[in-house]
């Protein structure tokens, strides 16, 4: 963020797309999803149902989670057809 209000763009225009990536929401989480790559069939159900765009997909393969943003809602674990995702309590 810029230093004084004078440098802020007029009309609160945000000139850059997707800046929310700089705000990490991962610390909201009480449970974290953990992937068992052995069971994963890369069906992308977790990806299509994730509210936080936090499923890491590389080259069409499910490669885990973006823990910086994942809020730990547990939808992916619930919808996974092969039960490859389990929710584990976060420890401080």
């Amino acid at each position: 963020m810029k230093e004084t209000w004078k440098e802020l763009p007029i009309g609160a225009i945000i000139k850059e797309p997707g800046t929310s990536k700089r705000f990490e929401t991962g610390d909201w989480r009480t449970e974290r999803p953990v992937l068992d790559p052995e069971k994963c069939i890369h069906c992308m159900f977790c990806w299509i149902y994730c509210p936080d765009s936090s499923i890491k997909v590389e080259d069409g393969k499910m490669e885990g989670f973006l823990y910086e943003y994942c809020k730990g809602c547990g939808i992916c674990a619930e919808m996974c057809p092969t039960k490859a995702i389990t929710m584990v309590r976060e420890e401080v």
Binding site: K21, T25, W28, P51, S54, E68, K71, C73
Partner: peptide, 23 residues
């Protein structure tokens, strides 16, 4: 084909402040 779509660029970035589990 969601497998195909999952390869494309995401247009809604993470880091938004919606509740966990928002529909």
């Amino acid at each position: 084909d969601i497998k195909k779509i999952a390869r494309t660029e995401q247009l809604f970035a993470p880091g938004h402040r919606a509740c966990a589990g928002c529909g």
